[in-house]
């Protein structure tokens, strides 16, 4: 069981691919199938997620990405520190 997981709203995603490019673990990919709006939405494809939250911040859609993490306190500051060091 990986430390984190990412759920992408398949209708809200516009398939820009920024999360795929940004994922440090290379765990995201655009799907081959088109969604209802005619784009290839992103999804998590590898069980390597650390729950770092980078995909959430690089995603331009307010609610397209939800990040889960195995119980952790104050996850936001952790992300920030990890990513800016």
């Amino acid at each position: 069981m990986a430390k984190g997981k990412v759920v992408v709203n398949q209708d809200e995603c516009k398939g820009c691919g920024l999360c795929v490019e940004s994922c440090p673990q290379k765990g995201m990919a655009l799907r081959e199938e088109l969604n209802h709006y005619g784009v290839h939405p992103a999804q998590q494809v590898e069980d390597v997620c650390t729950g770092c939250g980078i995909c959430y911040y690089v995603c331009p859609e307010p609610g397209a990405i939800v990040v889960y993490k195995v119980v952790a306190e104050a996850p936001r500051s952790e992300v920030l520190n990890a990513a800016t060091v």
Binding site: D11, E12, K14, Y57, P60, E61, P62
Partner: peptide, 21 residues
């Protein structure tokens, strides 16, 4: 499309909005 913004895919506005929100 009530569930998504009107911005183009990859537009910076969405990210800026998220940071402000």
């Amino acid at each position: 499309n009530r569930h998504q913004t009107h911005y183009c895919p990859g537009c910076g506005h969405g990210v800026a909005h998220k940071l402000i929100a």
